[in-house]
Design a protein around this nucleic acid. Structure first.
Lengths: 203, 203
DNA sequence: GACGGAGTAGAATGATCGTTCTACTCTCTT
DNA sequence: AAGAGAGTAGAACGATCATTCTACTCCGTC
């Protein structure tokens, strides 16, 4: 009697979790973790508070899972963008073309995992960020191996520095050519690796 | 009569602002901006709330000023660490030796400005972060010029990518050799710049 | 057709947020 | 000597925080 004619706003159970995670991912990427309150997540996802806490024990767990999903989605996008190019040097170039596209998007706000790791010192969120960077490095390693790079593992760690550095320069420094700069250095990297395999002295 | 014998806990006016900024800088570097409440700043600095709001209109202004001071201190440390080495390639090496030292410190928590920029989307805090990266790039440019690099400005933007990338790999990825990797790439960078000044095709 | 699980709406909790205010004390200046 | 300015301590404000709870509705299944 208190609510005479309630509309049927109830969502299908299967969609609740998905929408919850999608909205959470978007909000924390746009505004940061701490700045995103549960009220906002409730309002924009249309999922009731009670339902959220049925799926996730705490906000931290929700955020960690949303980031894990972003890891999945971002890596899928990145890999498929790179694999439009054939293996070898063209695919290496495609890495930075994909980054350049990403940087120029309107809603580009840096790397969600770098941002998250900068906001929380330790805990599951930081672990997800570290896992993402490891997965990215592993993929870079496979691309470098296709280029015939000796010691692709080492070169992948180098390449990851170039990728992350480009992200920071694009986001914080506003460098619109960051991806191109990183691409040029990556080119030098694989060229040197192929020409002379091991020159003992570093720098 | 309500406070019969209050101890003389009053600080010298000159020291209040300095201590306030020092404590704020430390807290936001360690725990992030949003996670650091004014209560904590009050407690750890010993500065009364009223006094804080005499110096700064809002928390945001306090944080921005604390970051501006960190910019000053960090750059002074960095430049003086680099200038223990003579100009030219040795000083370029010293850049990454300084970074390696920094990364291995117990309280290393990444770059305060990258962290801050990742936490807030826009506003004065983000501006301070961008200004810091510009100042760092300008110094890198001067070091590269001393190395005889043609187009030091472009190379400085490249070098900044290496520096920031190394910071991220060290902090997020836990790569303990990030500084050494970046140093090797920086070496390749200046070598290529010096040998062949302009090869038209990029990558 | 009744029941239980999972959904919604939204009030309520206690804590903490940034900010303001009152009351008092110290110190310098005139 | 007195007053002004700047400090401290800490209560108080309203807003918002994450989390819990009550009350109700839908839907699939015995």
């Amino acid at each position: 009697m208190t609510t005479p004619s309630r509309q049927s706003t109830k969502q299908r159970p299967a969609t609740v979790r998905a929408k919850l995670l999608a909205v959470t991912e978007r909000l924390i990427y746009t505004g940061g973790i701490h700045a995103t309150g549960m009220d906002r997540i409730v309002r924009e996802s249309g999922v009731a508070r009670k339902s959220i806490y049925r799926y996730f024990p705490t906000k931290e767990a929700l955020v960690a899972e949303a980031l894990r999903e972003r890891d999945e989605r971002w890596m899928n996008w990145f890999v498929s963008a790179c694999e439009t190019a054939p293996p070898g040097p063209p695919r290496l170039r495609a890495i930075f073309e994909a980054l350049a596209d990403w940087f120029s998007q309107d809603d580009f706000n840096g790397c969600a995992f770098i941002n998250a790791a900068g906001e929380v010192a330790a805990g599951p969120v930081h672990d997800v960020a570290r896992a993402h960077k490891r997965r990215l490095r592993d993929y870079l390693c496979s691309v470098l191996a296709e280029c015939g790079v000796t010691d692709a593992a080492t070169a992948a760690a180098d390449l990851l520095i170039l990728v992350d550095g480009a992200i920071i320069s694009a986001r914080v420094g506003g460098d619109s050519r960051a991806a191109q700069r990183a691409a040029r250095m990556a080119h030098q990297l694989v060229r040197d690796q192929n020409v002379s395999s091991t020159t003992g002295d570093s720098l």
